[in-house]
């Protein structure tokens, strides 16, 4: 039974990380109908920034709490700046181009960013500094759920609640929902669509950066290539839940996380990634609109 619970919690942790990344995919898709292939790379850059800042601060002897706060902020700020800049460079000029053009551009951006980090830093796996020490009161249940798992779960829940509040009640959130429904109409009622799209990229990238930092701290190492797999899996989660739908992305992420966790726990850990990819292929074939998405018919 303990094994089952352990797998369950590890699935929840995976799921919440996927959720943080998947939200970026689903929000961008909802607004401009583009699969932002470079989103996984934003996540990687967020994690790398956190790694660099945290290591610099720890070398210069800052206290642990300030390291966590400053590196987290730096990760969010820089990842959001990257998201904003990528949208301006690679996607904005192609807004009225044929459908495949922005996707090819996004793939190019993803390859570019990976190799940029590879060249500017290194191709080795780097040890991520320990940000979250094991808490003492967690000792009795440490074999089932670790401290970092709890921190990841709590952070994710807090971030989700904040995001929901932003989207439901603030002006920019309302503008985002309006733009997602009908871009032309949103322009007509005086919404600056360009700003809304930028804001979406900034928020999505910030979320991915938080996810990146948490995962890197959890796994304890980092590499320029982590974004590819995480990106694909988070995309799977977003599609599973119904791309474009925010609650769908969260639900899909937890389903994917739990599936992966149980499949690796009970079947075989060699084929961990095969499960995720097969799930992606199966969903797209049998239910392309996802769990909570609405099927849309193309009108001529």
């Amino acid at each position: 039974m303990d094994y089952f619970i352990e797998l369950f919690f590890s699935g929840l942790t995976r799921g919440s990380i996927y959720a943080l990344i998947a939200l970026g995919y689903t929000m961008v898709y909802g607004i401009i109908g583009l699969i932002n292939f470079a989103h996984g790379e934003i996540y990687m850059i967020g994690a790398f920034t956190a790694f660099i800042v945290a290591t610099v601060l720890s070398v210069y002897g800052f206290p642990l709490v300030s390291i966590v706060i400053i590196s987290g902020l730096a990760a969010v700020v820089w990842a959001s700046s990257y998201g904003y800049t990528i949208e301006k460079i690679a996607y904005k000029p192609l807004r009225h181009a044929p459908r495949l053009s922005p996707l090819i551009s996004a793939i190019g951006m993803s390859i570019f960013l990976q190799n940029y980090v590879l060249l500017a830093q290194t191709s080795d796996f780097l040890p991520f500094p320990t940000l979250f020490p094991d808490l003492e009161f967690m000792e009795p249940i440490a074999h089932i759920i670790g401290t970092t798992d709890v921190i990841i779960l709590v952070t994710t829940i807090v971030v989700m609640v904040l995001l929901t509040l932003i989207i439901k009640f603030t002006k920019i959130g309302k503008a985002m929902r309006a733009t997602a429904q009908d871009r032309t109409m949103a322009t007509l009622v005086g919404i600056n669509v360009n700003n809304v799209i930028s804001a979406t990229f900034i928020v999505g990238s910030g979320l991915a950066a938080i996810g990146g930092m948490l995962v890197a701290a959890h796994i304890g190492q980092i590499n320029f290539y982590i974004g590819f797999l995480a990106g694909i899996k988070a995309f799977t989660a977003a599609v599973l839940g119904g791309i474009g739908s925010i609650p769908g992305a969260v639900l899909g992420s937890f389903v994917l996380g739990l599936t992966e966790s149980f499949a690796t726990g009970y079947v075989s850990s060699d084929y961990e990634d095969v499960f995720a990819f097969s799930l992606l292929v199966l969903i797209l074939i049998f239910k392309p609109s996802g769990l909570l998405g609405r099927a849309s018919n193309e009108k001529v």
Binding site: L100, V239, F277, V281, P288
Partner: peptide, 22 residues
């Protein structure tokens, strides 16, 4: 994948390629 639209098709073929390699 015949029924899928352009961008979904791209991702499914990507997944297929990775499955074969894995």
């Amino acid at each position: 994948v015949l029924r899928l639209r352009g961008d979904y098709l791209a991702i499914v073929t990507l997944g297929f390629g990775e499955i074969i390699r894995l």
